[in-house]
Every structure is written in structure tokens, then in C-alpha cells.
Amino acid sequence: MKKNLLFLAGAACGTALLLGGCANSMNTIEPAGTVAQRQMLTDKRLITDTGLHRHVQPIGINTATGPGGFLKVQVEVQNTTGSRHSFNYRVEWFDENGMIINSPMAVATSRTIEGGETLAITATAPTDRAKDFRIKFIEAK
């Protein structure tokens, strides 16, 4: 009986240590009042993978155009779970007529997000003709 109790206690400690070691959650700090003025956009979302959406949840999009006229996009995503996750994303650009701009650079980019982390994904338009964009997220294999 005593042996069994000791074994159970050992197993419980081991599990707790293992879980503690596996956690990849992140703590952050930033100024309460930020100086930067962001131009946030209202977005339209199509969620087909709810699991991925929990790990990579878009929380806002802001854009800026530089002196050269190229559109720059920043998407903030948050991992609402407590575990590390790898994902891929791809940015598509569209001209003023809504036609897709083919670029040799339209490749999937891989990123890793820690548990609870907020990550900024940035992309610069391949040409100053790009006026709109679409960002696709997909699970890493």
C-alpha cells in the first residue's frame, strides 16, 4: 500500500515536471500609452481551420505607404493557446482593378509562435501598383 502511494506520488511529480518543462508560454511588457499612431483597417475573415485560428488569431491589420509609394502591411497575430506552434503564411497582392499581381516572391513563409505570444507579420508590396492584399495562413506540416 505504502509502495503504491509512493509510486503514485512519484508519477504525479514526474508528470508535473514534464508539463512544466513543455510549456512554451510567453510573458510580455510594453508601454501602456503607445506613441505610434496606427492606421488600423477593418478586416474580413474566412476561418476554415479553427485549430489553426486558436494558435494564429489575427488581432489587427495596419498599413502604411512609404515615400516611394509602396504599400506596407502589418498583421498582428496572437497565439491564444499555451503551446508553441508553427505555421506558414502567404501574401497575395492585387492592383487597383482587383487583379492579382504575379510575383516570383509569392512564396509560403514559415513562422513559429510561442504560447500566448503576439507576433507582427509584415509584408511590403512588390510594386507600387499594389493597392489591396490578402494573407493566407496554413498549418505547417
Binding site: G66, P67, K72, M105, A123
Partner: peptide, 25 residues
């Protein structure tokens, strides 16, 4: 090939961002 693509992607984005879009070209 995807490593070359990713490296080229990052380099072009950096060139546009820090050089062309900054009006230095």
C-alpha cells in the same frame, strides 16, 4: 529551392522597404 525563395523574398522586401520605398534609389 524554398530556402532560396525565402532568402530572395526577404532580400527583395528589405530592398524595397529600406532603399526603394525610402526614396534612396
Amino acid at each position: 529551392i524554398q530556402d532560396f525563395n525565402q532568402a530572395a523574398d526577404v532580400m527583395v522586401a528589405s530592398l524595397i522597404d529600406n532603399f526603394i520605398n525610402a526614396g534612396q534609389c
